[in-house]
């Protein structure tokens, strides 16, 4: 099975967690941070990252800040107040998801 399919559903909690820990980040920085934290195991493609960032921005979970770099503009994302609540909620959901998988794949014997 393709591992990237397994990671797909976890992209949003990963993103929210990174933003919680790092304050504000831009697209390329996020991809590099994930690559670094997972020792290259998880590579986020631009086609998956940007639609997610844009959706979360539209939903008011993320806010943006632009910075002019001379010849180009950089868009930084950070969590809004409701984004911080969403991040906490997504962590609980992810934990519950992990526990459910644990029950199936690694049951504790009585």
């Amino acid at each position: 099975m393709n591992k990237s399919n397994l990671y797909k559903g976890c992209l949003e909690p990963i993103l929210l967690k990174l933003l919680k820990e790092n304050g504000r980040m831009y697209g390329y920085e996020i991809t590099q941070k994930v690559k670094e934290l997972t020792a290259g195991e998880l590579k986020i493609t631009e086609g998956a990252l940007y639609p997610l960032l844009h959706r979360l921005e539209a939903e008011g979970i993320l806010e943006v800040e632009m910075e002019n770099l001379g010849n180009r503009v950089r868009k930084y994302y950070s969590l809004t107040a409701s984004g911080k609540k969403e991040q906490a909620r997504s962590m609980i959901e992810l934990e519950s998801f992990k526990n459910t998988l644990q029950l199936i794949f690694n049951p504790k014997l009585a």
Binding site: T45, E46, G47, Y50, P51, R55, E57, A58, E59
Partner: peptide, 20 residues
């Protein structure tokens, strides 16, 4: 080379559909 036209078109469409 990492970008396919299909992926970019989808990315553009996704951005356009975010208006709430």
């Amino acid at each position: 080379a990492r970008f396919s036209k299909k992926e970019l078109v989808l990315l553009n469409e996704a951005a356009g559909s975010n208006y709430d």
